[in-house]
Design a protein around this nucleic acid. Structure first.
Length: 269
DNA sequence: ATCGGGACCTGCTTGC
DNA sequence: TGCAAGCAGGTCCCGA
């Protein structure tokens, strides 16, 4: 489900319900996620949440002391529901809040994570992350600089969270289509002007997806269970074999970095 | 350092 | 109709 826009949509959705509230206790039904749920998180009692934020595809709950770090993996989601709502399948962790609500972590594939961060921002998973694409003033130059000497496909480069965060398999494909660049081009041999165009496309695509409330595929819904609407704007993702929306040519399908990839051989060069 | 491939896990869709 | 294979939004870790 979640790339940057879906995580951002989730943050914005839960923020007003969670900020300033107290976590009374935490119920862990299934601790075996990507990594075991941190015992420090499971043991939280009567702790105030001071802020809800996002870094890359990680969601952070700031507490009076320490942080809870959440990752939604491929199929995770967070919802705020009434405290008496019975848990369904794959509802692995509940954060019971004061005033009769709870924040519920749901994740069928269990690639997600619920971890403890003792000193804010200080965690191995957060170290070495690249810049936020929507906040970088010179993303194109950054990508160009970081790509020199690299032979990987351009799509793989922009999906590398050490280079730039938040771009996953959907938005990488959409951005490359919008920029008119083939996804399989060796990253190190792409020109500056094309990186400038690509950076603009990444920012436009991510921004539009956030405005639409994310892309809904199988699992994603916002905290009210409402779908994201960006799916209607998808030009290439999941459309292999269908006609290109720009030129009508049949869209090509391939695999890059073990991830399926769709592009138009006519519009993308 | 960089690269490709395998691993983690469940559920839905596809094809025989 | 039934069952197995294939595929899905992520990313860490390993060996070469």
């Amino acid at each position: 489900m979640p790339e940057l826009p879906e995580v951002e949509t989730t943050v914005r959705g839960i923020r007003p319900w969670v900020t300033g509230k107290r976590i009374e206790r935490v119920v862990v039904r299934q601790p075996a996620l990507r990594w075991p749920v941190s015992p420090e998180v499971a043991a939280l009692r009567r702790t105030r949440v001071t802020a809800v934020s996002r870094r890359a595809k990680y969601l952070l709950l700031d507490l009076a002391q320490g942080q809870v770090l959440l990752h939604l993996g491929m199929s995770g989601g967070l919802r705020v529901v009434a405290a008496e709502t019975p848990p369904g399948p794959h509802d692995h962790v509940d954060f019971h809040l004061d005033q009769g609500y709870l924040l519920r972590f749901h994740d069928p594939r269990r690639f997600g994570a619920v971890l403890w961060v003792a000193s804010p921002g200080c965690h191995a998973l957060l170290a070495g992350l690249g810049p936020e694409p929507l906040e970088h003033p010179d993303l194109g130059r950054h990508l160009h600089a970081r790509s020199r000497g690299r032979s990987v496909a351009l799509k793989q480069l922009i999906m590398d969270q050490r280079i730039v965060v938040g771009v996953g398999n959907i938005y990488a494909q959409e951005s490359l289509f919008l920029a008119g660049i083939r996804p399989d081009r060796p990253a190190g041999r792409v020109s500056m002007s094309r990186y400038l165009r690509l950076a603009e496309a990444i920012q436009l695509v991510l921004g539009k997806a956030i405005d639409a409330g994310g892309t809904t595929l199988r699992d994603f819904a916002d905290i009210h269970g409402k779908p994201g609407y960006f799916v209607q704007d998808l030009q290439v993702y999941g459309r292999g074999g269908e006609p290109c929306t720009r030129c009508g040519k049949r869209l090509s399908t391939g695999v890059l970095g073990q991830r399926s990839t769709v592009w138009c051989t006519n519009c993308q060069r």
